[in-house]
């Protein structure tokens, strides 16, 4: 009895959401079974659950009834019967998943054993994706509960409007399976746009199980690349720079004026006497004053050769990259962008 109560405490946590769902159950017997289970009255829950199964139930409610029965058997330590009830449940609802952190280990192990005793294809997922035809694939994921020969197909409209059947994979698998489908026709063209059904069929002896998912394939133009105006991380540099302020202008004025003075003194004729320095004084003073003023003034910007070369190189790189982009855009305009969007609708077991 302690074990039952212990299991019940676990199940209480698990079935807390189920308590809410009990309100939504249409079948009165199943609703009473759920309430009895919620009140930890497992024998009564088992009786009501089995009674509900004898009545006409919709698929979801029937799976729910098997689940209540399975949990009740697990709580009552009837593991084999719990496994049988779980098997019935997953055959009706193959996507049903229990959280091992929230259900009792006994119930979860019974559920896990049940999964491995029936052939199921579960959790079929076709991820949304978009790629250029011929340069990508559609990822397909699913789980097979037993080792089986698994054939995966995509069925849709053909190039002429008739049905088309594309074999994606045919192999022996067990457990998690990850496949990729390159949606192309035998001639290499992309498959026509439209709705497709991805069908996964597992066969083990006489047992077969299949699951399917609708996907939609649309065609679009491949985005062309914009032309570059700059390279990321590389900026144009100023092509002029202001040199540091120096005394060079005044020094040069001194040098030139001194050269004229020395030349004049050196070339004067002895017989003619010293020449007039008035003329040199006027011009030399003007040169020195100009040199002094230019020394105080902010120097004029001068070309920065290194930056000019760098900018030229950068411009050439951008032009080269733009030429490559233009060439690539020509190719892209001839390509087809395939967009695959899955629907959540899955097929029923067969």
């Amino acid at each position: 009895m302690t074990t039952c109560r212990g299991g019940g405490l676990f199940l209480l946590a698990v079935l807390a959401p189920a308590a809410g769902r009990a309100q939504a159950l249409q079948n009165a017997t199943l609703r009473r079974a759920q309430q009895a289970y919620d009140n930890l009255e497992y024998r009564q829950a088992l009786a009501f659950g089995q009674a509900a199964l004898r009545e006409r139930l919709a698929g979801a409610e029937r799976a729910r009834a098997y689940e209540v029965v399975a949990f009740s058997y697990a709580a009552l330590d009837s593991i084999l019967k719990a496994v049988d009830a779980f098997k019935q449940m997953v055959l009706i609802d193959p996507e049903r998943q229990l959280d091992p952190n929230r259900v009792s280990p006994k119930a979860y192990s019974a559920f896990d054993v049940a999964l491995r005793q029936v052939l199921l294809v579960r959790q079929l997922r076709v991820d949304s994706t978009s790629f250029v035809a011929g340069q990508g694939a559609v990822p397909i994921r699913f789980m097979v509960t037993q080792p089986a020969r698994v054939v995966t197909r995509a069925i849709g409209v053909g190039g002429g409007g008739g049905p088309a059947n594309f074999l994606v994979d045919s192999s022996a698998w067990n457990g998690q399976v990850n496949l990729s489908w390159s949606p192309r026709l035998p001639n290499g063209d992309p498959v026509p746009a439209g709705s497709y059904t991805v069908v996964v069929e597992a066969r083990l002896g006489q047992n077969t199980f299949s699951a399917s998912q609708q996907i939609r394939v649309t065609h679009g133009r491949v985005d062309t690349l914009p032309h570059l105006t700059s390279l990321p991380g590389y900026q144009y540099l100023p092509e002029t720079e202001i040199p540091a302020q120096t005394w060079r202008p005044l020094g040069v004025a001194f040098l030139y004026t001194g050269g004229a003075l020395i030349g004049t003194l050196g070339l004067e004729s002895g017989s003619l006497g010293a020449s007039s320095k008035r003329e040199l004084g006027v011009v030399g003073a003007a040169a020195l004053v100009t040199g002094f003023v230019m020394t105080l003034r902010r120097p004029a910007p001068r070309p920065a050769e290194g930056n000019i070369l760098y900018n030229r190189l950068l411009t050439e790189q951008i032009a080269r990259r733009n030429a490559e982009i233009a060439k690539e855009n020509v190719a892209r305009r001839q390509q087809v962008q395939l967009t695959i969007g899955p629907s959540l609708k899955t097929g029923a077991p067969r």
């Binding site: 202008p249 030139y256 004229a260 003023v293 230019m294 003034r297």
Partner: peptide
């Protein structure tokens, strides 16, 4: 002739 730019718009020259 040697010519030198003293600064913006100013040029000095010496010739022989």
């Amino acid at each position: 002739r040697s010519t030198y730019d003293l600064g913006p718009g100013a040029t000095v020259s010496f010739r022989v």
